[in-house]
């Protein structure tokens, strides 16, 4: 798409006899250089993101009939999810609600835990900041799946925590509330996404001009007021990007609820996965996926706007 635009306008200006030819035109044109830089990424984005989305959209308007797909366009899948009194409808809303509340809690917990770490590295680590950041990302050197399994071992019926507490004589029988419920999903996801919260918050804290904090102190603010009136509002971009970065993918997470969630921890993505697998109803899966996408998008837009408005009231 982009590459054809370049070659087209290139041939145009060549046709009008541009001085110095293609090279000079390339150097003169900001746009051409911009597209050339983005070109490879744009191509990949189109193939790997736009095309599948369009395909998904098409599927959601089709109908599964046995082993074949009827490609007559219809809104029936969406009616089944949103309007008709069907099991899809009830399931979608139950699981959507659960997904949003679980990943909402995950987001909150992760950002709240990440903020102090990011703050510490940005403001109190003087010498080995880079080393600190590397150390904080060490958990990410292990695969996501292995980390989820690790939590399963830690939280399990005969896991590290239970056997540890038992051998210390603190408990008699293993604690059952540790694994296979929404709490274990929150613990696992909060750990898994920690670095995605720490890094953006760290960057936005690091950028804050320290003179502003001195100015706030000079104008009468103690450490707490200084934090709420200057540091926190100025770290907003980092907090928001951390929250979005965690909330969006965790709402759609499928591995963690599958492995540590148990029956009470099934989330929307598990339902979608079933449509593309066992149930073999791709059109319904596509419609569920796109509905989830749209609602998560709306939630993000409104929450971010509300959060921004709230913070801008801090004076």
């Amino acid at each position: 798409m982009a590459t054809s635009a370049i070659s087209q306008s290139a041939s145009q200006s060549a046709g009008t006899g541009a001085r110095g030819g293609l090279r000079a035109w390339f150097l003169r044109s900001e746009n051409a250089r911009g597209y050339a830089l983005m070109g490879p990424t744009l191509v990949i984005m189109f193939i790997a993101l736009a095309a599948p989305l369009i395909l998904l959209l098409l599927y959601s308007f089709w109908t599964q009939e046995g082993y074949t797909v009827n490609t007559t366009l219809t809104f029936d899948r969406y009616f089944d999810i949103f309007v008709n009194d069907t099991s899809e409808n009830r399931l979608f809303w139950t699981l959507f609600q659960r997904s949003v509340s679980i990943s909402g809690v995950v987001t909150l917990v992760t950002v709240l835990l990440a903020y102090p770490i990011a703050y510490y590295v940005a403001f109190h680590v003087k010498k080995y900041k880079f080393l600190w950041l590397i150390l904080l990302t060490i958990p990410f050197w292990t695969s996501y799946l292995l980390r989820v399994f690790a939590w399963k071992i830690i939280l399990g019926y005969q896991g590290v925590i239970n056997s540890g507490l038992q051998s210390l004589g603190i408990i008699d029988a293993p604690l059952e509330f540790l694994l296979y419920n929404p709490t274990s999903i929150v613990i696992t996801l909060a750990h898994a996404w920690a670095a995605f919260a720490i890094l953006p918050i760290y960057v936005s804290l690091e950028k804050i001009d320290r003179t502003l904090l001195e100015a706030a102190a000079d104008l009468g603010d103690g450490p707490w007021r200084r934090f709420w009136r200057i540091t926190f509002p100025l770290s907003m971009p980092g907090v928001i990007s951390a929250a979005v970065l965690i909330f969006v993918p965790t709402t759609g997470d499928y591995v963690t609820p599958e492995l540590v969630g148990g029956t009470q921890g099934k989330m929307l993505a598990n339902l979608i996965q079933i449509q593309f697998g066992k149930s073999n109803d791709w059109p319904l899966g596509a419609a569920l996926a796109l509905s989830g996408l749209a609602f998560v998008g709306l939630i993000v837009v409104f929450t971010v706007a509300a959060f921004r408005a709230a913070v801008s009231r801090v004076r």
Binding site: D209, L212, A215, A216, D218, L219, R315
Partner: peptide, 27 residues
């Protein structure tokens, strides 16, 4: 610093970027 009867004009001015002029002065 926050308890001293002095105020400072900084070399870089340290105008709070997230506040407008009114809120800066009223800080």
């Amino acid at each position: 610093a926050n308890k001293r009867p002095s105020n400072m004009v900084f070399q870089s001015y340290a105008i709070f970027p997230h506040l407008n002029v009114h809120d800066n002065i009223a800080y």
